[in-house]
Write a protein that binds this DNA or RNA. Structure first.
Lengths: 194, 194
DNA sequence: GGATGTTGAATGAATGGTCATTCATTTACG
DNA sequence: CGTAAATGAATGACCATTCATTCAACATCC
């Protein structure tokens, strides 16, 4: 049991994204996901240990993909400012490209049980490390100030990006998320002060 | 039914905070809240329409209180920079003062059903308006730049504060949250750039 | 080549546990 | 007494998970 690959494995994960995005976390019963994947209820348990495992695997697959892409893309950029811009751009781009996934990761999965959120947190940590590296490079190369705390700065970057995406979804993605990249970069770099 | 005041009304809300903080949202059954409040299960339905109503009322009572305090305090400050500092300070102070409430509003209530979260969002909006006013005053008085979007800036402030509080809770409140006020204010005002 | 056997994937109806909510009854108070 | 407040056992709805059964594909032998 619990194969972790195959056509149906992916079909179930993709069905879960669609069902959760459409009906919300609390209405995403196993049987509904199964129906959406054209699979019997029991089949899900041949590929996943339980319902929680479906959700964790979903996040792991999608986020893991994104972190790999982002790491690689950033490593090919020299300038810390350009790295930061690209980080924001990639983050927004990946969610704007698949707004069902955006709803699921940004809104719905945050309603999951502690055990699930704990796993999600571990996966997210890998992304936060990438952010830290960008900031540290900027400090070392002298593009950024050296008198602030990296963790505080990273929380600011992540918090700002996260809040921006969440409001974008809450407003039904009515405006282009990508338009926010440069305004945010500007404020992060230069602050509000005149 | 559904009186919205009285000794037991408050006892139930406070019990809900304690139970949710201690056992988590998903283990906060009505009967457990009732027991913690020294009240019978059915009594809760004399004061609240249903379980969701307990959660919404909880947030409304606690957050409403905070917004009133903050509005008043800020109106007595002239300098926009000082207003922003005080906003951050009050936000952190109110959560550092009652870390059970912090857990509930910051972590647990975010797992609630859509209907509950919608109500919570409405209440939060009043707070976001206060933030907007602080930013607008800063722009008008020339303390802040006038070439950024107020909404973008507010998302940055709120996102940063929110993420900071969440990590503080996730790290079991091991360091003084208040220590973060000035570093955050500095980064918001001046940015990362050298 | 067709009859028969074997395997494991897939099915979906049935189960069991969990709670929110109700309401018949009791208690307290004026 | 009469009324309102409080009680808590009983109810019923919901849903993840199980597992006896079916099905499909391929192998083996005459």
């Amino acid at each position: 049991m619990a194969k972790r690959t195959g056509e149906k494995y992916e079909a179930i994960i993709d069905a879960a994204v669609r069902v959760i995005a459409k009906y919300g976390y609390h209405q995403a019963q196993v049987s509904r996901i199964a129906r959406e994947a054209n699979v019997a209820d029991g089949t899900i348990y041949l590929y996943f240990a339980n319902k929680d495992d479906v959700l964790i695997s979903l996040f792991n697959e999608k986020m893991g993909q994104f972190i790999s892409n982002a790491s690689k893309a950033l490593s090919e950029i020299e300038s810390p400012v350009d790295q930061l811009r690209e980080l924001i751009r990639l983050h927004f781009e990946s969610l704007a490209a698949d707004y069902q996934l955006a709803i699921v990761t940004q809104i719905e999965l945050r309603q999951s049980k502690p055990e699930v959120r704990k796993e999600i947190g571990l996966i997210l940590k890998r992304y936060l490390k990438v952010m830290d590296q960008v900031i540290e490079a900027g400090v070392e190369q002298g593009a950024f100030r050296d008198d602030f705390d990296v963790i505080t700065a990273r929380r600011m970057i992540f918090g700002t990006i996260d809040e921006t995406v969440t409001s974008w979804i809450m407003k039904d993605c009515k405006y282009p998320l990508m338009d926010q990249v440069d305004p945010i970069l500007d404020l992060l770099l230069n602050g509000f002060s005149r």
